[in-house]
Design a protein around this nucleic acid. Sequence first.
RNA 1: GCGCCCGUAGCUCAGUCGGAUAGAGCAUCAGAUUCCUAAUCUGGGGGCCACAGGUUCGAAUCCUGUCGGGCGCACCA
Length: 586
Amino acid sequence: MSYSTPESRTLHAAFAEKVDAVLSALEMEGTLPADTSRSNVTVEPPRDASHGDLATNAAMVLAKQAKTNPRELAGKIVEKLQADPEITEAEIAGPGFINMRLADGAWLRELATIAEFGEDYGKSNMGGGSTVNVEYVSANPTGPMHMGHCRGAVVGDALASLLEFAGHKVIREYYVNDAGGQVDVLARSAHLRYREALGETIGDIPEGLYPGDYLVPVGQYLANELGDKYQAAAEDEWLPIFRAEAVEQMMGLIKDDLALLGIHHDLFSSEAALQAAGKPEAAEEWLRKHDLVYDGVLEAPKGKAPPEDWEPVELPLFRSTKFGDDQDRPIKKSDGKWTYFGADLAYHMQKAEDADALIDIWGADHAGTVKRIKAAVAALSEGEGTPIPFDVKLVQMVQLMRAGEPLKMSKRSGNFITLAEMVDEVGKDVVRFTMLTRKPEAQMEFDFAKVVEASKDNPVFYVQYAHARIHSTLRKGAAEGFAPSVKNIELLGAEELELIKQAAQFPRMVEAAASAREAHRIAFYLYDLAGAFHAYWNLGNDNPQKRFIVAQDADLSGARLFLAAQIGQVILNGLAILGVEAVEEM
RNA sequence: GCGCCCGUAGCUCAGUCGGAUAGAGCAUCAGAUUCCUAAUCUGGGGGCCACAGGUUCGAAUCCUGUCGGGCGCACCA
């Protein structure tokens, strides 16, 4: 698989290479020692634009190795940089920064590059085609998706897209927890609805079963499929059948809900199938062979009062303390069934077979189990080389609000806000973008009243509006006979160049966001780019000569429309990563 | 009691591998619309980056401790 914009072709990477070449030359001359470590050298835009287009800290980082002071070393670097015709200015600043200004032509060429690559602009080969498994959502198949699942779903999906864009192969995976006690509860709840569908009066749903109405059609479906065969049968006769049927129905609901958010997984892995295939047994055997599982007795929980029925039991324990966990963890229960962790351990083993790196997106309420699963993955490489890279991303709770008032949700009464209701009320794009305008590990508020306001307070409209304005202008240009054209882009001036510089950051942002595994950076970047565009647009309010379409000047109009089209392209590409539609009209 | 996450402007939040004078929106004050979409823009005021130490040329960022908020803490999922 080849990628259209290899790293070396992006503007920033090209200039980083120029700096690197200068350092190599200084090594040849003996100014720098031959084995100089450059790992801390950065070449990036300074925060303050008045310092220039790019800055490097090379002199400060390398001064010690060169046995000189930063400013002196900077002088030698600057001397060589100035020889490059595309670097119009290179000067020493502050403690030894080197600030560079690039020739306009370099930026204009990047603008043409955007057009050349189109929807591939910003793609990177950073990932080198390596496979990353992103497991996200993985909600229990016991009912429709509710709000609590939403953030993790969006964060995981956007991260998956981001990694694809950055040159990884991505497996989007959903782990179906269809083997635990709660799917038995689901099966019993479905059986009750089945009897109801066959005409029985069931009254109130008993405590401990799922009361939600969403099981009514499941009962009807089962009545149609199975007749009254299991109406009076013993539980162990019907339980496995009802469990499987109900889970399948629930997964149908969940997939429909996810589709409302534009989320589609590549792979649904069943815990029950995993167990049926004997994977946990295989894992246990392997771990015992490496002395990572032993039979032992857990201590009573400290600090808080132990449960009344606490008693010491001997269980097979995984040595997670060896990998930094606080205590060893049981992989089997006293009834001989696998614990959730025991199965999950085998599941991660299975995922690791087909991927070069693993990422799990979990809700923050599972924070307590991160250490043990990290320990499990670390244990997989016991005795054989480097461990598989593994990240667990914790997504914090969302506090739902309406006009400043917290919304209370109660699972018991079945009174929770579903994902479908949420998407229906505010729309897919608002849900997705809003969830991505905070870093996932920080708690956030989601106010139903605020997020639908069509204002600058609401970033999704702000960014989409910029894209819509661009297309409005392109339409108007077309109507008046002006087409975007790369031919005369040298007519673009200082204000346009500022906009181009902002757009040219996109490939950098993609790589930075992908290596940090933080899709939200793309959202913030797009917000800034949209802001720069809106600011430029408004210049035309005061001065008609600064509009995109200047009726008397076809060459200039063509160049500016070309600029507009490329800004739109970058917004489109960024929104595509986030899974948000780039509307052309609002 | 222990573990994990968070603490940045009145509010909601960014802040790149440690980099230069810490940013944006909202709110507030003052302005811009015979105009390609004002769902926009320009400017002002607003900060002990929770607190105290440490690391170094340099700390909101890394380390230690304290305080505050959230989540979790035997075989549940």
